[in-house]
Design a protein around this nucleic acid. Structure first.
Length: 122
DNA sequence: CCTTTGACTCACT
DNA sequence: CAGTGAGCCAAAG
């Protein structure tokens, strides 16, 4: 078959640079650690595009291999908890990783913070 | 096709 | 210290 004919026209699937990079970084987040949208965006070179990281997380659900619960906003707040089926799902997943959550916020977030730009050595 | 919104963040007032 | 506006890029209406 012609590649052009087989070409998928809708829904970006695997192969989108920004999204794929985001997922790759999120997969590398160690258990018990967390990071922020801005940190990932910054690692990718676009610190302003933190919103796109959120969109990537939304698309990440289609993959199922991305621990999106380890990604929170810069305040350590579980801003994406509403997208885990249940508002408490994200917290439980983090607690299962050994991360303590208090009032929808990561306790000692600054210490648990995992910066890809630093940890990955960029 | 144009408008609005969204899992963010920073800067200014 | 809190509220508001702007920047970013893409998807849904």
């Amino acid at each position: 078959m012609s590649a052009s004919h087989m070409e998928n026209k809708t829904k970006q699937q695997y192969g989108q640079s920004f999204f794929e990079d985001v997922w790759d970084v999120v997969r590398q987040i160690p258990k018990g650690r967390v990071t922020s949208y801005g940190a990932i965006a910054n690692y990718l070179g676009t610190r302003m595009s933190a919103r796109m990281v959120g969109w990537a997380m939304n698309a990440a659900h289609a993959i199922g291999d991305v621990p999106a619960q380890r990604v929170v906003n810069r305040n350590g707040i579980l801003s994406g908890k509403a997208h885990f089926g249940s508002p408490e799902r994200m917290q439980e997943l983090l607690e299962a990783d050994g991360v303590e959550i208090r009032n929808d916020t990561v306790v000692d977030f600054k210490t648990l913070f995992w910066d890809p730009a630093t940890e990955l050595g960029l």
